[in-house]
Simulated scan of single mutants.
Amino acid sequence: GRLASRAPSPGLRLAALAQLARCSPDGLPGDVVPVVSGLLREMRSPPEASAPEGDEPVDPDAEQVDPEPVAAAETCRGEQVATPTLVGQLRSLSAQENAGRGAPWAADLLRTLHVGLDDRVGDRTALLADQLRSPDRRQRIDAVRMSGGLIRAWRGPYEELVALVGAQLSDPEPRLAEAASHVLEELFGLAAPAADALAARLADRPGDWVKSWPSGPPGLGSTVKALARLGDARALPALAAALEQPQVAHDLGFAVGR
């Protein structure tokens, strides 16, 4: 607990909180969400001072230290995450922060923290909402995927979270937009707050309405399926276009059945 509040760098404090969540989740502070959000903002900020002149350059031929092994942790609802050891986290975070780079363990630390929060749905939702507003696309991709796991595992008021996932559909990073569309596809009626974002992406990308594969029949794009599963009429042009294909998409019947 002391390291989580007194460590000299935000990365080390986040690592300590993640370890606390892993070993003694009841010991997490009540204000863990604003604390973690603040730490993430600090970690995204550029370092205030560069290394003093005269420091020896890093030898590219020097022996590299292997990262610490990663263990697996699982929540009571089956959400599995990687949990790097505390020693490995501290070594990696310290080295990265000293070099002025983002911490590579940040995503794993956040997953571990979510495991510890478990059924604290309000805290997890607030933390994911903050992650989905991050300027760091990698953090948002991870938050999109964790949002899907949370929504499928626990009941809760997810309207804002789903809308934030939907907002990722307009991002130019294809991996982020694809991750968001796949998560929304699996939410069925719960994806309603993202309906307008889905419709906008559908209209903007007609080439993604039907996906072709090297082998096997074509399939509907995830955006089409997500909107069709909502019973939204804006999916009809895409469904009609799929019917006109030489080979019918294998999942078209399920979508039309909605």
Rank of each mutant, 00 (worst) to 15 (best):
A126P: 01
R22P: 00
W154Y: 15
P193Q: 09
C76I: 10
A238M: 10
Q19M: 10
S212Q: 15
A18Q: 06
E79P: 01
D31H: 11
E178C: 12
S94I: 01
A73N: 07
R6K: 14
A195G: 05
A143R: 04
Q89D: 12
A107I: 11
L39M: 04
A95F: 09
P57V: 15
L227Y: 03
C76M: 05
R205L: 06
R101Y: 08
P29D: 09
S50Q: 09
L3A: 10
A4R: 01
D119G: 00
G189W: 06
S92M: 06
A242E: 00
V32H: 03
R152S: 14
E63C: 01
R120I: 00
R133K: 08
P193G: 06
E159W: 02
L3S: 08
L150W: 00
S222R: 05
H114C: 13
L202N: 03
P67M: 09
V165R: 02
D196Q: 02
L202G: 04
W154Q: 15
S212E: 15
L12R: 08
S24T: 13
G166Y: 01
E244V: 00
L109F: 07
L90F: 03
V33C: 13
G166L: 06
D31W: 00
H250T: 15
D66M: 12
V121M: 03
A143Y: 01
G148H: 04
R155I: 00
S9M: 07
D123E: 14
E53W: 12
P193F: 03
W154H: 15
L90D: 02
R44Q: 14
S50I: 08
V32F: 09
S50F: 07
L90V: 14
R111K: 02
A62M: 07
L227N: 02
R41T: 15
G88A: 01
L190Y: 13
L93D: 12
P69H: 07
A195T: 05
W154S: 14
V144I: 08
A226L: 07
A107D: 11
S212W: 12
P25Y: 09
A235C: 07
D108A: 15
G122V: 05
A240I: 01
E53K: 13
V65W: 04
E185S: 01
L93G: 13
L110Y: 10
L110D: 13
A7K: 09
L220I: 04
Y158H: 11
A107Q: 08
L190I: 11
A191P: 04
D251T: 10
T112K: 10
A203N: 01
A49I: 07
P157V: 11
R77D: 03
E68W: 11
R124Q: 11
L184K: 06
Q247E: 14
L17I: 10
R120P: 05
R205N: 11
P206F: 01
G38P: 04
W105R: 14
L14N: 03
V210E: 02
R175T: 12
E159M: 05
H114F: 08
L164H: 12
L109P: 04
S212N: 14
F188K: 10
D118K: 09
M146I: 06
P60T: 14
L86G: 00
A73R: 05
R234E: 11
D123H: 14
L109G: 15
L198G: 10
